[in-house]
Amino acid sequence: MSSEVFLNQIMPIKQKLFRFALHLLGNEEDAKDIIQDAFVKVWHNKEKMGELQNLEAWCMRITRNLALDKLKSKKYRITDDLDRAQEVPAAHQHTPHQQAERSDLMRRVHGLIRGLPEKYRTILQLRDIDGLSYQEIAEVLHIEMSEVKVNLHRARKQVREQLQNLHVYGIQ
């Protein structure tokens, strides 16, 4: 793999990789570190590139493995920065009250998704935020497609139940 292939095929998906790492780790700085480590690892394994069918899925798998290794390491402590939810850009201009309400709601949804088991959360993110197909998700996570569908269904069901609580009772 030449540097041109790396620049043309790997670099364009960096935002997707970053978002993926960010959701797994919940911390921007760590996500950046992981992406950089992932790029280095991809570059070191460039000989394998010819055999691969889906480069994107391979890069995402590397990113996920690195992120999970970091999570497992004893030193790591999940700092679920609730403030970050407020950084979610608003699509339109609102009154301060609406903005506060919106930020609060976004924070709750963020917390709700982070509360899901890792597998559910990852599948939900890959599908609903990154827009990957079931096949691509199966390749990233190295699992069967049927397993992707089952886990996604369970994840959405769990999210829906919590959303109903949030909507009807205002609790999470």
């Binding site: 970053f18 950046k32 950089q36 979610v88 608003a90 827009g131």
Partner: peptide
């Protein structure tokens, strides 16, 4: 329709999230 609104708005906002500068 309001029930699912926060979820999809959250997904949309996350998809639009700005990318920080990397060493690359």
């Amino acid at each position: 329709l309001m029930e699912a609104a926060p979820l999809f708005r959250y997904f949309h906002a996350e998809g639009e999230m700005p990318m920080p500068e990397l060493f690359t």
